[in-house]
Amino acid sequence: MLTQLHNVERNLNQVILGKPHQIRLALCCLLAEGHLLLEDLPGMGKTTLAHALADSLGLSYRRVQFTSDLLPGDLVGMNIYDSRSQQFRFQAGPVFSQVLLADEINRASPKTQSALLEAMEEKQVSIDGETRALPKPFFVIATQNPLFHAGTSALPESQLDRFMFRLSLGFPDRKAEHLLLQRDSSNSRLELLTEKLDLDQLRTLQQQVPQINASDSLIDYLLSLVEASRQRNDMLPLSPRASKAILRAAKAFALINNRDYVNADDVQQVFPYVAEHRLDPTSSAQESRLSTLILKATPCSI
């Protein structure tokens, strides 16, 4: 199963050139059953990555382009009166899919954003007092433009907190871009994807993640990182949900790296991507100033 995952990873690397680390982290996020936030300038390939991920996982996915006039109903669906049966019939929205691609999530109004919020956390939606469960698994892969761009409204802290990872692809290096231009073809690059994970495989992998071993001293180290954020006043303190997310992410990272235990390096690797947007919601994903600060200041004896 893991080999298949690695095949998928290799395949993804052929689609998104020169970003192996981000791809691994993105896969790691999905294995950890977390939602993924991709933040980048327009045209950096974040939508492509989101597509490619959804594609590779072999899940049903829907894509919603968020705009300022998108209403919550457009997202979760609504009850429509069927004149023939003289009954209200539920018309499911795009959120009822295994993977929701929320493109440019910060263009939507806060009201719509918070509708997504419930769906992300509870894995269910309530429409007209009726609660409907979302399919399993349910991922949100959201992309957003950096906040200083026109026509964006910032995601509130509470909502940012629901994204396990925040990644930024950044510019490709010269060699990768060279290759990209060379291979330029009219076809979508997504056609390159041949290796896919089926649902069972994904589930099994996801079930393996919690079983990855995290020793006491590792948890101690993680807690000392978290506590460091709580003792400073130049950053938001990391919540227990955040520490849970860090551990889960580290476990998934260890799994991808073919280990049955988490080591300190795993924690150090995932920490910036899990913690930075929680420490400072206004920060840009390209930088990881605060999390690096914490990593540097916290001694590691293991």
Binding site: A264, D265, Q268, A297, T298, C300, S301, I302
Partner: peptide, 23 residues
């Protein structure tokens, strides 16, 4: 942890405090 700290001894002087032992 204790064992390796004892055995490495002075070698650890060149280890950064925040560096993990495996690194």
């Amino acid at each position: 942890t204790l064992l390796i700290q004892r055995q490495l001894g002075k070698l650890l002087q060149s280890k950064a405090a925040n560096q993990s032992m495996s690194a």
